[in-house]
């Protein structure tokens, strides 16, 4: 039997995805489109937030939506009903989106003059945090009924996001959710994160979120 020898590999396991994600951003430069990756647990209000965002933008930005689900097209239908270009990616059991799937999603939108594309990632606070989708900004939702201890349980997700939307604040009077404790936990992990309190039900805080989107889209257009 041949002697055992050592070969240096020195490669990132996710090198391919990192490369494809960089390619996504490069392609979006051509059309000056900002890509936002929206992540959260199932049921925290990703689709409701997208519907509120459509209403809040009032046509001020040209928006497209990429919906990801393990196996359904309910979400994309809701978005398309508002006259917004939307595609549904079925991940076929995968727990997250990677940059290759996002590339397919952008192509499937078949619109090249968008200001903003929002990806609704698979509902999950674990896996999506590990994979670069090619987005410029990562945004997550934590809803009040989920509890203020989630930053302790899913630290990676909270540490990679640029914005945390705390949704369902209309539930606050009914719950023991400690907003200050939650803020402290998140900011200890990620001091640059922006925290916006919203309610997709009452519309509270949506204008602040839409303002953030408009500011970031303008920044990206100026940069490129």
């Amino acid at each position: 039997m041949a002697e055992v020898r050592l070969i240096e590999v020195k490669e990132e396991i996710l090198a391919d995805n990192i490369k494809v994600a960089a390619g996504v951003r490069e392609n979006l430069q051509k059309t000056k489109t900002m890509l936002v990756n929206l992540m959260s647990s199932p049921g925290s209000g990703k689709t409701s937030l997208i519907l509120q965002t459509i209403a809040g933008l009032k046509g001020r930005l040209r928006l497209g939506v990429i919906e990801a689900d393990i196996d359904s097209s309910v979400d994309a239908e809701k978005v398309a009903a508002r006259g917004i270009p939307a595609v549904q990616l079925r991940t076929g059991g995968f727990c997250h989106l990677d940059a290759t799937m996002v590339t397919q999603g952008i192509e499937a939108l078949k619109v090249s003059d968008l200001d903003l594309i929002i990806i609704e990632n698979v509902g999950n606070l674990v896996c999506p945090a590990e994979f670069d989708t090619g987005a410029h900004k990562n945004v997550m939702i934590l809803s009040v009924p989920e509890g203020d201890d989630k930053p302790l349980k899913y630290p990676l997700m909270f540490s990679i996001c640029d914005v945390l939307l705390v949704n369902k604040i209309d539930y606050l009077p009914l719950s023991d959710f400690d907003m200050e404790a939650m803020r402290k936990r998140v900011l200890a992990l990620n001091p640059r994160i922006e925290i916006i309190e919203v309610s997709c039900k009452t519309g509270a805080g949506i204008s602040q979120w839409v303002g953030w989107l408009q500011k970031e889209v303008a920044t990206i257009k100026n940069l490129i």
């Binding site: 041949a2 002697e3 020898r5 070969i7 020195k10 990132e12 396991i13």
Partner: peptide, 12 residues
């Protein structure tokens, strides 16, 4: 703490 890296491998 976020590393995902293949360092090397032993082969024959």
């Amino acid at each position: 703490g976020r590393e995902y890296y293949i360092k090397d491998m032993e082969v024959q």
